[in-house]
């Protein structure tokens, strides 16, 4: 870990201004991912601006009938909120499928969205990684890639986005609210929040330097049955090989997003039109153009079968 300076921000705008004006500065809230990466010098910020204590720690009803989740709401509190459990079950289930109780107590909503990949080559600073060091190459391509992405990859990066929460937010059409260094607020649809790696895998989100997430809003509830099906070798405390977040209506229509397959939560709205035709048809469109490696080719049929499990359960209910 490199030495760094640290300060507390007085307000969201202050925090954004501080990070924007200081070279190589980062926000810190729960720190459950950032500190681990700093210890192994994958992250080497020179300055940390703590945003805990700035508010943003409530879940409130919106005038539109949805929920505004403060950026600093802890994962445990979000997953256990009665309104979330009642109206947005997919979100609650996704959160408790991830990490451990201790981590969820500490991790924040915004921080969870910003989790960095768990690609093992990203974690080992002796190995080339375009995400860590632009232009150094990708050791994962041609290497051990069982956990890695099958779709939306590039020749520069095949990392996955590792989180669960964001996959559920993707099917719920959540929106990310931010504030920037000039105090300007904006709203980013979750679909546009995470980026594909392309030629710049270092850039993972739509956030501008210094832009701070203040909340995530959920539109009004859409009803239906909510599923979060996470497939992994170990029963708990493991990242998804594949996960399926789904909301399925009585008539068989619905929404579905995949985790563990791409550099972002993977949803193709057009594929959802195939829901009445069954999981195979949905998966075919959802994963059209997939470019798996030999190690992770199984994720293609696995995604389809996991989706089949969810749709089967929805029918049986």
């Amino acid at each position: 870990m490199k030495a760094f300076t640290y300060e507390r921000a007085g307000s969201a705008a202050d925090a954004a201004a501080k990070v924007a004006s200081t070279p190589n500065a980062k926000f810190i809230a729960g720190g459950t991912n950032l500190l681990d990466l700093m210890k192994i010098e994958v992250e080497t910020p020179q300055h940390l601006v703590e945003v805990n204590g700035l508010g943003f720690d409530k879940i409130e009803a919106t005038p539109e009938g949805g929920l505004r989740i403060g950026a600093l709401v802890r994962n445990t509190n979000l997953a256990s909120d009665a309104r979330v459990r009642r109206d947005y079950g997919v979100l609650s289930r996704a959160i408790v499928a991830g990490a451990s109780g201790q981590l969820r107590n500490k991790a924040t909503t915004a921080g969870n969205l910003l989790q960095r990949t768990r690609c093992p080559y990203f974690y080992d600073t002796n190995q080339p990684c375009n995400k860590r060091q632009a232009g150094s190459g990708c050791a994962a391509i041609g290497g051990y890639s069982r956990q890695l992405a099958i779709i939306g990859t590039s020749d520069a990066c095949i990392a996955t986005y590792p989180g669960d929460m964001a996959v559920a937010m993707r099917v719920l059409d959540a929106q990310v609210e931010t504030i920037d260094a000039r105090g300007q607020a904006r709203v980013i649809p979750i679909a546009d929040f995470h980026r594909l790696p392309g030629t710049t895998p270092r850039i993972e989100t739509a956030l501008a330097p210094g832009e701070l997430i203040t909340a995530v809003t959920l539109p009004k509830p859409i009803g239906g049955q909510h599923f979060y099906e996470k497939v992994r070798d170990r029963a708990s405390y493991a990242f998804a090989l594949v996960s399926v977040a789904a909301v399925i209506q009585k008539d068989g229509s619905g929404r579905v997003a995949l985790g563990g397959v791409a550099h972002k939560p993977w949803r193709v709205e057009a594929a959802e039109a195939q829901m009445p035709a069954g999981s195979r048809a949905v998966a075919a469109q959802l994963l059209a153009g997939a470019r798996p490696t030999r190690d992770n080719a199984f994720k293609v049929p696995l995604a389809e079968r996991t989706l089949a499990a969810v749709m089967n359960e929805a029918r049986a209910a």
Binding site: R118, P120, Y123, D233, R234, A235, S236, Y237, A238, F239
Partner: peptide, 10 residues
């Protein structure tokens, strides 16, 4: 995280 050993749930 990469080398998984069983947890209680297993």
């Amino acid at each position: 995280a990469g080398y998984e050993v069983p947890v209680h749930a297993d």
